[in-house]
């Protein structure tokens, strides 16, 4: 079972992702509402997988990905964002994310994206 941290400024999205992961594949170890909080929780919980929103207050997702990858280059990050342009997706992947899921998303799409992420 892989440990998972959820990063999103929306509580209902955090809860939706948590509900989707009610399986034997992932165990949610932390949930953060912005990038700064995610960095603190990462140090405490050391998750293997992260779902990352991009548009957040205090520290956005792209800046957070850079800092997380500096701490753990093997971290698997799935960006989950409404920002649907190619340049944003490419930028996130260049910074170290391994997948991109566009909002809105279904439970099946999320599980498929997380499974792909962990099968690499």
């Amino acid at each position: 079972m892989l440990s998972l941290m959820i990063v999103d400024d929306s509580n209902i999205i955090r809860r939706k992702i948590e509900r989707c992961n009610d399986s034997d594949k992932f165990r949610v170890v932390a949930a953060a509402a912005n990038g700064a909080e995610a960095l603190e929780l990462f140090k405490q919980t050391r998750p293997q997988v992260v779902t990352m929103d991009l548009t957040m207050p205090e520290m956005d997702g792209i800046a957070c990905i850079q800092q997380l990858m500096a701490m753990d280059s093997g971290l698997r990050i799935l960006v989950i964002s409404a920002l649907s342009d190619k340049a944003t997706g490419i930028d996130a992947l260049k910074k170290g994310a391994r997948g991109f899921l566009c909002k809105p998303f279904t439970d099946d799409q999320l599980l498929e994206a997380l499974t792909e992420l962990t099968e690499d």
């Binding site: 929306s10 342009d85 809105p104």
Partner: peptide
């Protein structure tokens, strides 16, 4: 609101 606006970037760009 965030989702509708963010999705518009597929047309308007980053």
């Amino acid at each position: 609101a965030n989702t509708i606006s963010g999705n518009a970037r597929s047309r308007f760009g980053h």
